[in-house]
Design a protein around this nucleic acid. Structure first.
Lengths: 139, 139
DNA sequence: TTATATTAGTTAGCCTAGCTAACTATAAAC
DNA sequence: GTTTATAGTTAGCTAGGCTAACTAATATAA
């Protein structure tokens, strides 16, 4: 087994336990990890269109429609007019802003526990590896 | 944003593009990445029961039933009697053995391309980080 | 030794988180 | 002014899981 194969084996093996545990953490907020990813994107990058969200998350437009409509129902986000009559910009509501802050605090110990015993430098190295793979894979 | 949050953001962001590209690579063999994970497990660790597969992959027994039955249909695996009349051991068929070898060779350049420009040492560090998280998360 | 509890695998039916195809409304390009 | 492209939606599909409830076989305890 090459180290590349081993890397991707371990990468994938970790995915489901991680997502399952994350979803448990998010349950009090009526959120799944995919919806949380949208909120985090809006928090970090500000208001963006449905297409922007699709591109950022590497998913298709109809998937974004579903995610955002659920977040609208929950009152966590709102839409406003975009640069023309077709485009709609999604942004966090006042309530959503508060909630995202709260969730971030709530998740902090979970993430720290997950990475317990890992050197800060190694976390940074691994993070850069992800970014590089993302780039390589999308040419 | 803490480095822990950034780590998990990047981790998740990479997942879908990676799995989608991997599934394209596996298409000629009529396999999806989850089915491939089962074959790889059987190749690496030898014949195992449905419960063993469930534990290893962190999924439930009914999910294993579906995956293995698909692999049986394709003729890639076979079952044999286990240590008692309840248990069934799954193992690669002769054809499956050959195929797994072929797929591994086929995937090699894909993995190398994905990790192009990443130092061997950093790949190893990241792999160990995954293993540690897996351990931390499952107590 | 029987009654009870546990374990291995299956079936049915559900959910998340995506997808494609086809559509409407609007905008851009020719 | 017609064609082409873009933003978002709808309908209906799939992968890849899940829980609940079941059967058959085994282990435990009275």
């Amino acid at each position: 087994m090459t180290i590349e194969q081993e890397f991707f084996n371990q990468y994938r093996l970790m995915y489901r336990p991680f997502i399952n545990k994350l979803n448990v953490q998010l349950e009090p907020y009526q959120l799944y990890s995919s919806q949380w990813a949208v909120l985090r994107f809006l928090k970090d990058k500000g208001p963006h269109s449905f297409v922007d969200i699709a591109n950022f998350m590497s998913i298709e437009k109809p998937s974004v429609t579903k995610l955002v409509h659920k977040l609208l129902e929950l009152g966590y986000v709102e839409t406003m007019a975009g640069k023309d009559k077709r485009e709609k910009l999604v942004h966090l509501s006042a309530y959503g802003e508060e909630l995202v802050q709260e969730i971030k605090s709530h998740l902090k110990p979970f993430f720290e526990h997950a990475l317990a015993g890992v050197a800060q430098q190694d976390i940074e190295i691994a993070t850069q590896v992800f970014a590089r793979i993302y780039m390589n894979i999308n040419q």
